[in-house]
């Protein structure tokens, strides 16, 4: 009888230790924690797991900067097979390194197979993905960096621009893509190649610069400079060589 009672007590105690309560953040590590009180940071070492109501993170090692007390986190730097999921910011991601500045909502993912997935936009890179959630600024660096949303696929070595601040539907308002080996943009019915591709939501113009190719409806048009108006779905292409014919195709559908 006494043994059963002891077992029940042990079960209750172990449950109360391991069960995370609402509002709490639970962190486990395999190789300890180093706390630097004056410098206000701590290191979480080996097989780190962070679990809270609206954020989970797995990584090999994590450095956490704090203010005043350990749970007032200002910056988080994780490395080694980083995976995270934030329901608060509606995003998840992975990479070799993650830097997250909490106050400024700035996020950086670095390394091979980095990816950042939000409700509307997916970003992939083997180099660097940077997003500022407050200003909407984003950038991707590295070979074959890729950005996908509902209507567009963008591939290039450098992709940067701005998202709209609409929380429910983050649209791309400004976009600049560069790749010396040709950037690629695919929207609803067109595929575009050029060294440099720019887009401005206000003018609804996609600008294509150097080694331009537009493929649409089985038609392929080549030039040195082009623009595509996403509003009326028309495009223009011209060549630096004056003897070449400029092509203008209007689609009045």
């Amino acid at each position: 009888m006494s043994l059963i009672f002891k077992l029940i007590v042990i079960c209750i105690i172990s449950l109360s230790i391991s069960a995370r309560e609402i509002g709490e953040t639970e962190i486990t590590t395999d190789d300890g924690i180093e706390v630097f009180q004056n410098e206000q940071y701590y290191l979480l070492k080996k097989n780190v797991k962070i679990d809270s109501d609206n954020f989970t993170l797995n990584a090999e090692n994590v450095k956490v900067d704090f203010e005043d007390n350990l749970n007032n986190i200002t910056e988080l730097n994780a490395e080694g097979a980083v995976k995270f999921d934030s329901s608060e910011f509606n995003m998840r991601g992975q990479g070799e390194k993650l830097k997250f500045e909490v106050k400024y909502e700035r996020l950086e993912l670095q390394g091979l197979d980095s990816e950042l997935i939000t409700e509307n936009i997916e970003m992939f890179s083997n180099g660097l993905i940077k997003v500022n959630n407050l200003t909407g600024e984003f950038s991707l660096f590295g070979e074959k960096s890729k950005l996908i949303n509902e209507n567009i696929i963008i591939i290039g070595e450098t992709i940067d621009g701005f998202f709209s601040n609409n929380i429910n539907n983050k649209e791309i308002t400004i976009l600049n893509v560069f790749d010396n080996n040709l950037s690629y943009v695919k929207n609803n019915n067109s595929e575009m190649y050029a060294k440099k591709i720019n887009y401005n939501n206000e003018t609804s113009l996609i600008e294509l610069i150097d080694d331009v190719t537009i493929i649409r409806d089985g038609e392929k048009v080549v030039g040195d400079y082009g623009t595509l108006d996403t509003k009326n779905n028309s495009y223009k292409i011209k060549s630096n060589n004056e003897s070449k014919v400029k092509v203008i195709i209007l689609n009045n559908e």
């Binding site: 230790i17 995370r20 709490e24 953040t25 639970e26 962190i27 486990t28 590590t29 395999d30 190789d31 300890g32 924690i33 180093e34 706390v35 979480l44 809270s52 350990l70 749970n71």
Partner: peptide
Amino acid sequence: VFYGKSFIVL
């Protein structure tokens, strides 16, 4: 420095 398997609750 805290050693070994560690558990933090914030």
